[in-house]
Design a protein around this nucleic acid. Structure first.
Length: 580
RNA sequence: GCCGAUGUAGCUCAGCUGGUAGAGCAUUUCCAUGGUAAGGAAAAGGCCGCAGGUUCGAAUCCUGUCAUCGGCUCCA
């Protein structure tokens, strides 16, 4: 969302102030760049000493100390040569100056207080307009110069900045809310998955409850696919390197491949993707165009040797479960197939209340060498996708240059309950693998015809989708997806038998029901069900047993009612089958 | 992988400047037999991440290592 223009100026001005503070506190510091960002600002500097989070207070104090001596910013335009002299010894600024000069832009300096910085502008008129309590330094981090990992690592200090103290605090509140929804916290609390130091980083272990979640999500996707003619396939998790040499992935993925050498010296790899395997299933025979499309679905793990620093919770792992599917079809069928996949995506994400946005990712005509295949083929495929988007009335973002090297795609972004957007599903056309594996069908004329392959992941990866979903619903899954759907609590042990009877009625229609021992007070057991985010708690005692009823408590709303057992169970069963 | 921080009981966390560990919740047992968000008591539970080093003595200081977190780079 766009923020008031002057707030961005305030943030940028505060970055200057931060730079000045760093310079004063750490002599020998070489400043680089300090932009405004969403929510605040940062400054990247080459600081000769180690700066840690503990120093933030000191830096912030220095900023507040300097602030009153700053007023407006004065602009000064100087020659590149003068600027270079002025920033002699600061190779970062010199690099920037050279770039500005090369672009033919004016070299400008901005001064406030006693601090002058190379800057293109965009400041507040008066530093006095920035409340001293409207900003807060948040953390120190490392960042590569120019975002290039082959270049020096700089010290980056981040700060939050808003128009007022109240807005700053509101922002911190939002962050706190997000932290409460953190899938790592909820995953532990709800007992969904764990990591073991013995198993290794990025290799999640799924508990019984977490496995229910995975299974139910996968089943849902499978139902949507089965209705559209997909068939399940299964493949081994390792393969000879030859497969990836042929597919072209051996070089592209080489750093990420987990390699295996057999005792006879043959080289294998854990699969980092499934498409080549699926292509080999397709390639098993000659196909008539009448038999196409062939649609193969396969939920399976792939393995990628991600750098340890990139791993985090479930959102970035080394064993990734993809709900992968590939459609092998003629180009003329591709639109209809993409349309069907889109239907699945819409129904799937709609069920959870995600708002979707679509990006049409096309090739960049300026760099044809980055793409494989005929320009005419690309154009046709991109037109197909654009047409489809138009027909569906979707608001599509243009993503020129965002295509994969092997074909254009539609990328879907889902907005979650607290407004964050996540890239989720994709529909990708692939010209590369049909070419490399010589995938064809026999057309009407009896001649072989090159086919197209469509990659169709709905969740993308179950791990990543699970993080998005857990945080979206804050751990309170809809009934159909809850690992435990119902907890039956007898008021006391006297009614344990009746509680079991009620549970059995639920289980007979496929509900997942728990009946904990009545060895704690009722209040405590009700609280436990609430904390565990079980959707419904049933309480039974003397009255219910006599009437054949149950008292049910909706743990999402706190409402409760008493009704005949059969009636409640039938109601819940309906909610489950309709996924409402 | 890089920069910074953190690692103490199953979980969440105390443990000041070095003198070999503590709470709450969870667990187990006993009492209480409960009516819609925590009844009471007791017990058990720790290679203070791991390996070295400094020291009479290390959870505490130093080095290395592993893991986690916040970023960077990369990515489903």
């Amino acid at each position: 969302m766009p923020e008031p223009h002057n707030l961005e100026h305030a943030r940028h001005s505060l970055a200057h102030l931060l730079g000045a503070a760093l310079l004063e506190l750490y002599p020998g510091t070489k400043l680089t760049i300090g932009p405004a960002i969403e929510g605040g600002f940062y400054y990247d500097a080459d600081v000769p000493v180690k700066v840690s989070d503990a120093d933030l207070e000191k830096i912030e104090a220095k900023m507040r100390e300097l602030l009153p001596s700053w007023a407006g910013f004065t602009r000064e335009e100087i020659s590149a040569a003068d600027a270079s002299e002025r920033f002699a010894g600061n190779e970062y600024k010199l690099e920037l100056i050279a770039e500005i000069e090369a672009k033919g832009e004016p070299v400008t300096l901005y001064t406030s207080g006693s601090f002058t910085d190379l800057c293109r502008g965009g400041h507040v008129e008066d530093m006095g307009s920035i409340p001293a309590d409207s900003f807060k330094l948040s953390r120190v981090a490392g960042a590569y110069w120019r975002g290039d990992e082959s270049r020096p690592m700089l010290t980056r200090v981040y700060g939050y900045a808003f128009a007022s103290r109240a807005e700053l605090e509101a922002h911190l509140q939002v962050l706190e809310e997000a932290a409460k929804r953190d899938h790592r916290v909820l995953g532990k609390q709800l007992d969904l998955f764990v990591f073991s130091e013995l198993v290794g980083p990025g290799l999640p272990l799924w508990t019984p409850k977490g496995t229910w979640l995975r299974t139910l999500l996968d089943q849902f996707v499978w139902e949507l696919r089965a209705r559209r003619g997909y068939e399940r396939v299964e493949i081994p998790h390792i393969t000879k390197k030859d497969l990836y040499e042929k597919s072209g992935h051996w070089t592209k993925f080489s750093d990420e491949l987990f390699r295996i050498k057999t005792r006879e010296g043959h080289e294998f790899a854990m699969k980092p993707m499934n498409c080549p395997h699926h292509a080999q299933i397709y390639a098993r025979k000659m196909w008539s165009y009448r038999e196409l499309p062939q649609r193969y679905a396969n939920t399976t793990m792939v393995y990628r040797d991600e750098q340890t620093g990139e791993l985090g919770g479930l959102s970035r792992v080394r064993s990734i479960t993809q709900d992968d599917a590939h459609v092998f079809c003629r180009m003329s069928q591709s639109k209809e197939e993409a349309n069907k996949i889109w239907d699945i995506i819409e129904e799937f994400y709609g069920t959870f209340g995600f708002e979707l946005r679509v990006r049409l990712s096309t090739h960049d005509p300026a760099t044809p060498e980055r793409y494989l295949g005929e320009p005419s083929q690309w154009e046709a495929a991109e037109n197909t996708l654009a047409e489809l988007a138009r027909e569906r009335g979707a608001i599509t973002l243009a993503g020129a240059g965002e295509a994969a090297f092997y074909g254009p795609k539609l990328d879907f972004m889902a907005k979650d309950a607290i407004g964050r957007e996540h890239q989720v599903a994709t529909i990708q056309f692939d010209f590369n693998q049909p070419e490399r594996f010589d995938l064809t069908c026999v057309g009407e004329s009896g001649e072989p015809e090159r086919i197209v392959m469509i990659h169709a992941a709905i969740m993308g990866s179950i791990e990543r989708f699970a993080t998005v979903l857990i945080e979206h619903v804050s751990g309170a899954f809809p009934l159909w997806l809850s690992p435990v759907q119902l907890r039956v609590l007898p008021v006391s042990a006297k009614f344990a038998e009746y509680a079991q009877k009620v549970a059995d009625v639920g289980r007979s229609v496929g509900l997942r029901v728990e009946v904990p021992d009545a060895d704690e007070t009722l209040g405590k057991r009700i609280r436990a069900a609430e904390v565990d985010k079980v959707p419904y708690t049933i309480v039974v005692g003397e009255k219910e047993e006599a009437d054949g009823t149950v008292s049910v408590r909706n743990n999402r709303t706190g409402e409760q009612e008493t009704l005949p057992t059969a009636e409640l169970i039938a109601k819940l069963a309906t909610l489950v089958t309709t996924r409402s």
